[in-house]
Design a protein around this nucleic acid. Structure first.
Lengths: 334, 334
DNA sequence: GTTTAGCAATCAAAAAGAAAGAGTGCTAAA
DNA sequence: TTTAGCACTCTTTCTTTTTGATTGCTAAAC
């Protein structure tokens, strides 16, 4: 759909712009990229690429800058595969080898490694708990009036929550709780913990509703609780030339500061292995100058969270995507 | 040590500068603050205040700006007590009334409320665990090869950690663990969990070292783990006029991004109820444009963490300190 | 002795103007 | 179809000018 030479020129322009953050002129392309034609020819092609919507001009007599459509084409068709060095591979390997006891920790290590290798700001979030099945529930008495509930899911994720009471709880009651909850909930999806269950358990046990209610409430809360966001390398973004603009910097801060937005961004669309949102493709005003690239942290195809990069539209897509692919593969095999 | 009128003028200048972020002229003080003398007199006083080091001039023909010494005097001597409105009191009350099960959550609510009321960026950190005493330790078997250890301290803080094994663990073993650990450690300070204990328990139980070792290791790790930083309202800082300077913005981001520095800042010096660090009083290059105000989250005089504000040197000290005092009182009484 | 009116001097910030230079688009020739 | 050549455009940068706020000083007033 785009002739070979146009593709080459577009690629050269975007590569150059990614490097320099300056509008790209026909002269630079001629000299640096040696495509075997003169700057005049490149100029002619640029006019057409602009007409087709792949390029933009900040003003009449300036060089060209990629448009959102240009970046999109670049990401979909022109990207360099395996743009990752041996050194980087080794670094990632060494980081991911760290022994961890909790999945959340592994996600965090992967997230910080991603930021370190790409030099962009990275962010991650745990998995949506409510899709998972309950493997086991345990209640532990702490002191006399405090109960800790620990839920183990089939993906190996552990959720725990504390429940406080106004009256004493006996070890006996705790045992009954353990038996009943496990009988009733083992193997069931997490979101089965809700109203109907409450009645069942209430009738089953000789507890007062006063005791059962806070348990169900708190379990419910623990399960539906938003999983923690983890942000790494926010300061790296501030080294980028685009952050000389106060507006850009502000948008960035507003973005990473509004946890709900970040959650939304990390939780949408996972048709592909790696998802790329360029500029305001995901219509958020604060996002217009940034791109977001995400992938799912999976292990044996079970969803363990999402990891992403938030960087300028002029992001080094090849590098980021290559690094992500590698990390993703490593995590899944771990 | 400073005559009454000089104090009044200094206060007026600092108040004005806090409001406007612009160098303050003698004319403005005369008109707005009505101190009963002419601008010429104020000018004369300003010269002396500058000579004494309380004021500075960006350039020869500009108004005056408070120096670090000026702010320090302001904070120590001129601050307005109870600079908090009824509305703000009500808002704080309603926020702190929220029922929580975990102390960490309460600290977080207090932190975000502080940011909301003062419009500055706030930050908090949990207490240093290792000063506390163990009230109870419980081990819970999750699946066959995973153990959760739950530690309850005498301050009501619950720490939990997961330990994975390469071989199966029996319920029986878990029971023994529970008995031994509780016998040995109840009432002891948390940092007693270390080497000697390992041997004791090893000799006491017929476990292989293979099992005991990871438990001690992981408990130790959980206890000495840096407590979580919680940051709220970073975007609020970016609305301040001082953040028009890219350098200031960068310093700020570097500051809040380096968790170790934030930890240090929150963990130093608590002779007073409320601690104020103005500019580079705590010699960190990134801090030179900012002030930090902190207080301890206490309940019945037990340390439950630290909460702070990080804002421009031109911060509304009266407001921040008043709000902090109120929140601190409320938390302690809760 | 202290306060204040008056005013020249200072200097940043804003506005206006001039020059430089990078890059384009078009034309006409190769 | 490609390319050399060149006028045109428009930002960027540098100077210059203007404006205006504020000071510090002097001398008079209190």
């Amino acid at each position: 759909m785009l002739e070979e030479r146009k593709k080459k020129i577009l690629q050269a322009i975007i590569d150059e712009y990614i490097n320099t953050a300056e509008p790209v002129s026909s002269g630079v392309i001629e000299k640096k990229y040696r495509l075997g034609c003169s700057s005049a020819t490149i100029r002619n092609e640029m006019v057409e690429l602009e007409k087709a919507g792949y390029l933009e001009k900040p003003h009449t007599s300036s060089g060209r800058v990629p448009s959102a459509k240009g970046y999109r084409f670049y990401v979909d068709e022109l990207i360099k595969e395996d743009d990752i060095s041996l050194q980087e591979i080794k670094y990632i390997q060494s980081k991911l080898e760290t022994k961890v006891n909790e999945i959340e920790e592994l996600t965090q290590i992967a997230t910080s490694t991603l930021s370190e290798v790409t030099h962009y700001t990275s962010v991650s979030i745990g998995p949506k708990a409510n899709f998972q099945n309950i493997e086991e529930i345990k209640f532990v008495l702490l002191g006399n009036r405090m109960l800790m509930a620990v839920i183990l899911t089939d993906t190996g994720i552990v959720k725990e929550t504390i429940i406080k009471f106004d009256e004493d709880i006996t070890e006996e009651q705790v045992n009954t709780l353990n038996i009943i909850f496990n009988n009733k909930l083992k193997g069931k999806p997490l979101d089965e913990i809700d109203k109907p269950l409450e009645e069942y358990i209430f009738s089953e046990m000789n507890y007062s509703l006063k005791v059962i209610k806070p348990i169900i409430q708190q379990l419910d809360r623990a399960i539906n609780e938003d999983s923690k966001l983890y942000l790494e390398g926010a300061n790296k973004s501030f080294e980028l030339p685009e952050f000389k603009s106060l507006e850009v910097a502000k948008n960035f801060i507003n973005l990473i500061d509004t946890k709900e937005v970040m959650r939304d961004l990390l939780n949408t669309g996972f048709a592909k292995d790696i998802n790329v949102y360029i500029g305001d493709e995901s219509d958020n005003e604060n996002l217009k100058d940034f791109s977001i690239i995400t992938f799912k942290h999976r292990y044996q195809n079970k969803d363990l969270g999402t990891i992403g990069i938030i960087g300028p539209k002029r992001m080094d897509y090849s590098k980021v995507i290559s690094v992500m692919k590698y990390i993703s593969k490593k995590l899944n095999g771990k």
